[in-house]
Design a protein around this nucleic acid. Sequence first.
DNA 1: TATTCGTGGCC
DNA 2: TGGCCAAGAAT
Length: 297
Amino acid sequence: MSDDHGAPGDLHEPILGWYADHARDLPWRHDDCSAWGVLVSEVMLQQTPVARVLPVWLEWMERWPTPRDLALAPAGDAVRAWGRLGYPRRALRLHQSAVAIVEQHGSEVPATEAELLTLPGVGTYTAAAVACFAHGERTVVVDTNVRRVEARAVTGAALPAAALTRAETALAATLVPADPAVARVWNVAVMELGALVCTARSPRCPDCPVAHLCAWRLAGSPAYDGPPRKGQAWEGTDRQVRGAMLAVLRAADGPVGLAGLAAACPDDEVRRMRCLDGLVTDGLVEPLGRGRFTLPR
DNA sequence: TATTCGTGGCC
DNA sequence: TGGCCAAGAAT
């Protein structure tokens, strides 16, 4: 029909069609899911796989079905209910967001990106995602999946650059359909394609609806040739100790003494105290005096 | 712009 | 086996 093979517009029909057939049935995508449910899901999904988020999200929605419900609970309850999703400051920020939504937004999750961006823990991606998926706004949603799909299909690179570039955002913007309702499906469809088919390590190109026009494939699927990607250090980091300390506090019924927290880092008192200080500064741990600590009240 | 911040599963 | 990676945000 068109002779300009590879034009960005050619991606729409195949990807939207693929999504219609292969989308996962996730509760936060249901029409009856509240904007609050969408916001909670988006924050939980930051750097955390769907499989791990699902049971915790269901628990949260049952326990705190509205922002007001969470705002009325102690912050520590949110941190404990966060379980082992990782990056527990997200739980704290979600609680702070709930309070802000109640106090400053009439208990309704804001609909515009600008307002959403004022909420703690809500950045560029999450604001665009919530405005779009919860409120139907036509936004440009750019997450790691979108970046990878577009890097391959359009740019021809094996992987996107380490940091989001203006060019990527501009490209993504040109690809978002003009109609808000279609844009909404497009945004989630590209993410889904990246999550299920156009994966980082071993992409399932035979299952890809745009393999025939993928610039990366047409170039012979060249290996990544950019600057070396530095991994996420873990062994011997403060994160490891902070995580262990928080695990102790989550498991405990009441306050925990320094001796109990020492198990998280038995061989290095300097690091141990630095991490504890950091947790207190972050608001994830509350000092009670006399060397006793608890999750925030 | 580069770091820091959890956790666990997978190839 | 272990490095890599997962719907990022804040500083």
